[in-house]
């Protein structure tokens, strides 16, 4: 496979996951697109060294995290209203489910970054606790704790709206 084909394969395989990861890091569509473009630009420049398939995902994540941190050092980014983010059509969700999606997204946006990031790595990127621990450079047990707390916090955030919805019925 020539470098261009390898790169196209890389884009097809990882661009969706990487974009979603970037989006949940910064919660801004334009900034997430920029982060992803910069990440893949670097991937293209290093394509010759990216032979180890197993390492590619971790490498891409490292670049997104580094670029995001650099952006945040320079400026505080305005974040877009989570209700404005469209729901993925391909999922064919019912109207109720779409409302749930918006509620969960709003709750996600309120999660502290230390909880949100490992959760996105696990749910979006399909990473194991061990892989997340390596990426975040923390212990596996710390990852487990953060993931547990992330879900616990999400449930707490979602509870009031569930109660309201039930009360209205």
């Amino acid at each position: 496979m020539d470098p261009q084909e390898s790169f196209e394969e890389l884009v097809k395989t990882y661009s969706t996951e990487i974009y979603r990861y970037a989006y949940w890091l910064c919660r801004d569509e334009a900034v997430a697109s920029d982060l992803v473009q910069e990440t893949f630009l670097r991937a293209w420049r290093s394509i010759a060294q990216l032979r180890e398939v197993a390492a590619v995902k971790a490498w891409l994540i490292t670049i997104v995290r580094r670029e995001h941190a650099r952006l945040f050092e320079r400026k505080r980014l305005p974040t877009e209203d989570i209700d404005e983010v469209p729901v993925e059509d391909e999922l064919n969700l019912s109207a109720d489910a779409q409302m749930d999606v918006h509620l969960v997204r709003a709750a996600m946006a309120e999660l502290p970054e230390k909880y949100r990031e490992p959760l996105v790595m696990q749910v979006v990127m399909g990473m194991s606790c061990k892989e997340i621990a390596q990426s975040l450079e923390i212990s596996e047990s710390a990852v487990m704790t953060q993931l547990f707390r992330a879900r616990q916090k999400l449930r707490e955030l979602l509870e009031p709206s569930e109660t309201i919805a039930e009360g209205q019925r």
Binding site: S15, V36, E88, D89, L91, D100, V101, R105, L119
Partner: peptide, 14 residues
Amino acid sequence: ALSAALAVPLPDQL
């Protein structure tokens, strides 16, 4: 529900 919520669509042309 969580997985569906996190699946934000890719911007056009990205």
